[in-house]
Design a protein around this nucleic acid. Structure first.
Lengths: 144, 144
DNA sequence: CGGTATCCGAGATGATACTG
DNA sequence: CAGTATCATCTCGGATACCG
């Protein structure tokens, strides 16, 4: 394939950034975008980031707010977010132990971005539900 | 818990929409947001939506462009996207068979939203990589 | 060409038990 | 309180084979 062929196939208008390259969405080993995307779009990560917006919370508070999360998964999720520099973990040397979690500045910029995605989903979930119902109805027609 | 308690904990400023409710990010059965998010943030879905921006492609073309996808997963992914009303499937009654996939208007609005997320990831992947290296280095210090 | 059906292994997740 | 460790389960995805 010639240089540029891929991009010219992918974009029909000049409304996108000139240096934007859809190939970076792919899964080759040198591309971390996919992996990071998997992490931040994760079920529990999203909820943790949502809850930590503008406040810090303790482990147990998070667990109470996030209905259905197991202790293990919350722990794993928080460790990943901490490693990625999105959340800070502050241990207070008191008894009983007290650990506070909060968003880093980086985590706060992510919150805004994720919110756009969640907002899109909220705004269009009706359309999607209708599309699914239509699809399923058509399938049932075929079978009868 | 009193009404509003949750929200007042979650938002420290008036910069968000008044009717925005972070509880909708959760996983209760009446909340489809999580499930839709899982679908569209999916590895293969993202790539399919990226490639179908402003063009329609045949099954085999998609398979060639998306490195590493199995026939099964591409098929499953396309069927889900079709069911959700994000992609259209057009069968041309010729031999050999020809099937074209394209984004619906709804799918096109999603493309823009997803692009923001991918752009955030691209812009910050350096910071994340550095945070991970720091975290791992600190962990190794502890062990020695 | 463009699929579907079936089987199977790996990794993700939950439940449970234990600890500083 | 805030975890970690271990085990059981279960879903996802790949490989393979077959079909219109």
């Amino acid at each position: 394939m010639e240089d540029g062929t891929f991009r010219s196939l992918s974009y029909c208008e000049g409304t996108v950034d000139d240096d934007y390259d859809v190939r970076q969405w792919d899964t080759r080993e040198d591309c971390e975008v996919r992996q990071i995307l998997d992490r931040i779009a994760d079920k529990w990560s999203l909820l943790v980031i949502a809850l930590l917006d503008c406040q810090s919370l303790r482990f147990t508070q998070l667990r109470r707010e996030i209905d259905g999360v197991s202790q293990r998964m919350l722990s794993v999720t928080l460790r990943q977010l901490e490693r990625d520099g999105l959340v800070t973990r502050t241990v207070h040397p008191v008894v009983p132990p007290r650990v506070d979690y909060a968003l880093t500045p980086l985590g706060r910029t992510l919150h805004q971005t994720i919110k756009s995605l969640v907002t899109w989903t909220e705004e269009h979930q009706g359309e999607i539900a209708r599309a699914r119902a239509d699809y399923d109805a058509r399938r049932e027609m075929m079978e009868s």
